[in-house]
């Protein structure tokens, strides 16, 4: 079932993307084109095929559970759009 403007609006909200109302129809058209094109994958027989999640067949990397850095609050905050008393500042979330 093709996506309509309401579907696109819902997906955009899930992705926390503001999309202007007037763009919803054209975006729905573009997304439907792409989704229609990728649906050719249904032709491929994948019965019994394990999904490929990584190209490297490697064991999980392990390391000792030691703190090896820290004390760099100023570096961490250096690019903050807004900060207050050594914290990131955001709009009020609790009244």
């Amino acid at each position: 079932m093709p996506l309509n403007r309401d579907n696109v609006s819902a997906i955009a909200h899930l992705a926390r993307l503001k999309v202007p109302e007037e763009d919803l129809d054209s975006l729905a058209g573009e997304l439907n084109n792409i989704l229609g094109w990728v649906e050719q994958l249904d032709e491929v027989d994948t019965d019994g095929v394990a999904p490929m999640t990584s190209v490297v067949a490697t064991e999980y990397a392990r390391r000792a559970d030691n703190v090896d850095d820290g004390g760099i609050a100023e570096d961490v905050l250096a690019n903050a759009p807004d900060r207050m008393d050594g914290f990131f500042a955001v709009p009020k979330v609790v009244e």
Binding site: V38, L41, D42, V44, T46, V49, A50, P51, M52
Partner: peptide, 8 residues
Amino acid sequence: KAQKVRAR
């Protein structure tokens, strides 16, 4: 599905 085709 895409991950499976990727394996193929």
